[in-house]
Design a protein around this nucleic acid. Structure first.
Length: 292
DNA sequence: CACCAGGCAGCCG
DNA sequence: CGGCTGCATGGT
């Protein structure tokens, strides 16, 4: 009996100044990264990846026999000069405070289907619980990925085909609640090609958003999350409960603002880096009561 | 027990 | 169009 071949790790340094890996991976845009011995373990493009933060750099390790490091660089967006982005933020004290507390917060460029499905599961859920539902789901389908010795098991994000063929009851057993039929129907639409995640990439922001909103369980907020976190559309500015509160309390105290009035303010005030500004505001609101 | 969480769809006026 | 409500589940 021949012994199984040892999984060999390929590693690579990425030059990444002003990159706060911890805050970026825990900022509620991606839900599957796990801390392990001061490293981060996750899956990018169907392959196990370990990330380690270093001063001015990120070290990546993968099991892929012939890794395409550009895919990793693309996912992490290491080549974005974040100071060039934050320098163009409007001069208001909340964003300045957010930047000073966390200057290396980044936007990732995730897989569209995983991002879409994850945010369909996100509605009126806390980030920690979204992660738990997603892990329960991945553990249910058990789609294998090569994991090196000594590391915890991890499974791939389930395909739209697999989810669309699962009963709503089974999905509810994974604690999705009322989101189960939405996820199943959206998975079916993607699996059958009614909507093509790759085609959306080529659409401008507004028509891409209209296209995503056709999916059941996807409204303006979830569409904006996918447009920003998977497609990198900078115009997207997801307004969730936290950001809505930030806008009303910080920018329009004691004023009655309609949703559309807020939206038109946002598109003017935070341009051109709406999405990054939104992520910094979101981070500020979630951490302003906790010491650094 | 009440109240809230990275919302959306259906319904009502 | 704008406003209201039900929807599952887990945490405080």
């Amino acid at each position: 009996m021949t012994p199984l071949p040892k999984t060999r790790l390929r590693t690579r340094h990425f030059f990444a100044p002003n990159y706060n890996l911890h805050e970026t991976l825990t900022s509620g845009q991606a839900f599957r990264w796990k801390q392990h011995n001061n490293n981060w373990i996750g899956i990018i493009q169907d392959h196990w990846v370990r990330l380690s933060a270093r001063p001015e750099a990120i070290i990546a390790a993968t099991t892929h026999p012939e890794p395409d490091w550009n895919l990793l660089k693309h996912y992490l967006q290491t080549e974005v000069d974040i100071t060039e982005v934050t320098d163009q933020f409007p001069q208001d004290q909340y964003l300045r405070t957010a930047i000073s507390k966390c200057c290396g917060l980044r936007l990732l460029r995730q897989n569209p289907w995983e991002c879409l499905a994850s945010f369909i599961l996100s509605s009126t859920k806390q980030i920690l619980h979204i992660s738990k539902i997603i892990e329960a789901m991945a553990a249910y389908y058990k789609i294998a990925v090569t994991v090196p010795d000594g590391y915890p098991e991890i499974f791939q994000f389930p395909t739209p085909e697999a989810i669309s063929q699962t009963s709503e009851n089974q999905l509810r057993r994974l604690k999705m609640g009322y989101r189960a039929p939405y996820l199943k129907a959206s998975a079916k639409a993607v699996a059958e090609g009614t909507i093509d995640p790759d085609a959306i990439n080529h659409l401008p922001y507004t028509s891409a958003k209209e296209s995503l909103i056709q999916l059941p369980g996807v409204g303006p907020k979830i569409a904006d999350c996918v447009l920003l976190f998977a497609y990198g559309k900078q115009e997207a500015f997801p307004i969730d409960i936290w950001v809505d509160r930030a806008l009303r309390e910080l920018y329009f105290p004691r004023q009655q603002m309609t949703q559309s009035a807020l939206e038109s303010f946002v598109s003017k005030h935070f341009a051109p880096y709406n999405g990054y500004a939104q992520q910094y505001l979101f981070h500020y609101m979630r951490t302003k009561h906790t010491p650094p």
